[in-house]
Amino acid sequence: MRSDLGIATNPADPFDLRARRVHEAEGRGRRAFALFQAARHPGPLVWILPSHAPELPMLRGLPRGVGERLHLFRPMGETDLLWCIEEALRAVPVSLVIAEPEKPLSLTAGRRLQLAAEAGRTTGLMLIRQEAGSNATETRWACEPLASQPADSTLHQWALNKNKKGTLGRWVLNWNGTSAAFHMVSEARQRHEPAETAP
């Protein structure tokens, strides 16, 4: 409930993941989204990825303060991976669990992870492949990097496609990947109302 209130009182920041729930992110920019969330969660972080996954987080490229809090689990096999996720979610001191399951989560597995997250008061973020989401997830984000015309910005388009307790949305923001700070990019649009003229 507290996080719900937090969203309500701080409408400018729609990227707060609801605490004690498991969320999903898909798309090419899902790892950037995960690191953005990691920078916003103080406390120990756990990143669970299969042992044969070639893509590893690179320490020098991570946002400031994330590298020393990060623990990598590299289990073999999907069963061990799910077990690791559940165990990490159940651990109270961990603040955010990022996991990259290979196969779509079944409803049972997804629900079990939600219960574990509630028991451990931990937030979870599954980095899933396209169309591999679970119905039990709290929110699902589609994250894509965007090309930016000005040279000094790194644009991301993060769309909230599924939300169990709120509205959907689509945001373009400029986040350079070094800290938790970001800038919303206002959407260019056609103006329908007449321009205000100075009296």
């Binding site: 790892r31 950037a32 690191l35 070639p54 893509e55 590893l56 987080p57 690179m58 020098r60 490229g61 991570l62 990947g177 070094t178």
Partner: peptide, 9 residues
Amino acid sequence: SNRPITLFP
């Protein structure tokens, strides 16, 4: 210079 967030072979 800055570094990527993910590294692979």
